[in-house]
Design a protein around this nucleic acid. Structure first.
Lengths: 230, 230
DNA sequence: CAAGTGTACATTGCTGACAATCAGCAATGT
DNA sequence: ACATTGCTGATTGTCAGCAATGTACACTTG
């Protein structure tokens, strides 16, 4: 093309129906739109999305492998009933991946990433101050995600993206909302500060403390609800 | 059933064709039966297994998500071409999961598991002494797998089982065989010994050393082959 | 002969239909 | 009245076929 190149244009949106359905279901599950234990049939889902069962089937298989749905052969797929134990187990994997990402992030020490993450935390703290809980919740998620992405490992990122959806689904299913703890903001800041300082050990410790506190809160809040419920 | 209970019988083998195909392909890929970059079509695979394309499709999608195949929309799925960088990235995730498992294993401190793992290592060392490399390779894999399984975390196990298949495929694709290093046996023993002693930090260090050495060997061996090749 | 164009072939994406399986309930026999 | 059997409706598992897409190559045109 010697002259007058074709004007820049967005490529046509090529959608993989199965992937779209999986993404949409993931969202719905994370938002807690389904009740625990509920069965979701291929047929009804296909009808809802106005497609055949094929792509829906693919989406189900995928979500099942991610642990977001439970499948029983020749019976159907069900929304899992999640216990506090599940959240704890989920956090084991989550912390493993995020911790390794932190370490790698520090060893590569990219200032640009640090400022970006810092900006995220600024906005997060502002949301907390303003009481914009939902937005803060999103930013919390984004921070952790970006932290892992910044490590630059495809596989760590892939694993984390998968595990964090379950985290969210778990917490939502148990009626737990993040920003309930007053020290919320400082935990994240501690992690990032340690990373910027190149203190891998400290960053890991801060991350561990963050997670342990969330789990402790969750256990307490869960005990409250179960006792008041019965 | 008052008397004469029905004689014990194994339940009928209920197979999910897609799952079986995925497992078989996983095996073939780990064994390096496909050449890197090769295309694998749904049709030919379906014909080879004498089933329709449906289950094959599911298997492909699954393996793609596990990172064992690469899929291009409307083009087909291909055997990925793996670089040393891929192995390094794979080891990042692998070490994260195995390290977390080690930690949890230690904190739960189950003597029965330790003896079982010790027995595995005994057999492993014997194979090394006898020069039974293939069997040693298997036992090596089994040891790591059982180590993670012994941690008792469903999600850590699931993640590890997934990642280790890719490890194997990577190493095989790069023409690397494990038991080439003389200190092979002691590494594993160091990990287990530290775990038995309740030394989480030492176990992690031993694991890290083990992996770092494998990667170093790999980089060296790969440089050799590439230089001799060109 | 070079550059662009049109066509044929291969492969995936999706659909609708059929077969296998399962949980629950009614029918049957003791 | 109780246990077992057989049926029923629903759901998944599998299949073959059609449409959409992408690649390769021969063809036209300058």
């Amino acid at each position: 093309m010697p002259q007058g190149a074709f004007p820049a244009t967005a490529p046509i949106e090529q959608v993989d129906v199965g992937e779209v359905i999986a993404a949409r279901l993931r969202e719905l599950l994370a938002e807690g739109k389904f009740v625990a234990g509920e069965q979701i049939t291929e047929g009804s889902t296909a009808a809802a999305f106005n497609v055949s069962r094929g792509p829906v089937r693919e989406a189900f298989k995928r979500l099942t492998q991610e642990g977001l749905l439970k499948s029983e052969r020749n019976r159907g797929v069900f929304v899992p009933v999640l216990s506090v134990g599940d959240v704890e187990d989920n956090y084991l994997l989550r912390e493993a991946v995020e911790g390794a990402s932190l370490e790698r992030l520090i060893s590569r020490s990219n200032p640009a990433e640090y400022t970006r993450l810092g900006d995220l935390l600024d906005r997060f703290e502002q949301c907390l101050a303003e009481g914009a809980w939902d937005l803060a919740d999103d930013l919390d998620l984004t921070f952790h995600k970006e932290l892992v992405h910044a490590a630059g490992s495809r596989r760590l990122r892939h694993a984390f993206d998968s595990v964090i959806v379950e985290t969210r689904m778990c917490l939502r299913a148990l009626g737990f909302h993040h920003p309930e703890h007053p020290d919320m903001a400082s935990w994240h800041r501690d992690i990032l500060d340690a990373a910027v300082a190149g203190d891998a050990e400290g960053a890991r410790r801060a991350l561990r403390f963050h997670n342990a506190t969330v789990l402790k809160d969750l256990r307490r809040s869960n005990e409250d609800t179960t006792t008041t419920g019965s």
